[in-house]
């Protein structure tokens, strides 16, 4: 029994280790590739670079990756802020009022959760271009916010159903109006729920591609996903620069994930509940 148990354990460790290697190797190869010379790439694709210098990062940065990075940070931060604030406001009302209207509103929002942006991209593109919203980092925040709101409302709605009402009632008795109660009493206590929703939406928006591809066509406003795709065309055989650009795009969000994974995992677990 004892030795059989040990063998099973070796097998299980072997399997998860193999999968981890399968995940790690391409990522490591990307980062290492950013330090290799063109010659090293051709002579030995699996080899290590002779020296570690940051020339390729400079070349990638020089073609605008720095700007793409800033654009992505700006769009992501602003969108997440809008999503969290307006979703919290709406979810609060939906969880605290029970009538026909609110049920209809909730239904509309839940239906919005199911609509994929690919399926409505033609009218959406025609609307935003007709409204003169192309090539504006502010304008793309609006559709990003819209597509982040339904899931965030569903998350917050569940949070408010469990929120102690006594706190709000006390505030109301002290003469706080509902809007003030919300901003002064409820919102400050939403910490963990906000963190979960924010990190989930941040990853989604940081990585969004289709809307960015269609709405942000000028180099000065491109975000990372669109920018790095164009990088492949600019450095047709400068593999190190491509790998450096990809590393710049991937490593910040990986860092955020590792630091905040507790909240991230929590919001994902919410999907299954």
């Amino acid at each position: 029994m004892g030795s059989r148990f040990r063998w099973v354990q070796v097998l299980l460790y072997g399997f998860v280790s193999l999968w981890s290697l399968f995940v790690l190797l391409p990522t490591a190869w990307m980062v290492i590739g950013a330090f290799k010379t063109k010659r090293e790439f051709f002579l030995d694709p699996l080899g290590m670079p002779a020296s570690f210098d940051f020339d390729a990062f400079e070349r990638a940065w020089g073609t605008g990756v720095g700007g793409f990075l800033l654009n992505s940070m700006f769009v992501t931060a602003l969108s997440v802020l809008v999503i969290v604030v307006v979703s919290a406001m709406a979810a609060y009302v939906l969880a605290r009022t029970d009538n026909r209207w609110m049920r209809l509103v909730y239904l509309v929002i839940v239906a919005g959760f199911a609509v994929p942006v690919q399926a409505v991209i033609i009218p959406l593109f025609q609307m935003v271009s007709g409204a003169g919203m192309l090539n504006s980092l502010f304008a793309i925040v609006l559709p990003y916010a819209a597509y982040g709101i339904p899931f965030t409302i569903i998350l917050f709605y569940a949070f408010f159903l469990d929120f102690p009402r006594e706190l709000e009632e006390a505030a109301l008795l002290d003469g706080c109006r509902p809007v003030k109660t919300f901003f002064h009493i409820v919102l400050p206590l939403m910490g963990p729920a906000v963190a979960s929703a924010a990190i989930f939406q941040a990853v989604f928006i940081w990585n969004e591609f289709l809307l960015a591809l269609l709405m942000l066509t000028k180099p000065a406003v491109k975000t990372l996903t669109v920018g790095i795709l164009q990088l492949g065309g600019e450095f047709t055989s400068d593999w190190a620069a491509i790998m450096a650009g990809l590393s710049i795009a991937v490593l910040p969000i990986l860092t955020v994930f590792i630091l905040a994974q507790k909240y991230f995992v929590r919001s994902l677990a919410g999907l299954g509940k």
Partner: peptide
Amino acid sequence: LLTPALGLVILFIVI
């Protein structure tokens, strides 16, 4: 409290 979220969803998803 409801209008900003509902407005964005209607404008950019429902319509």
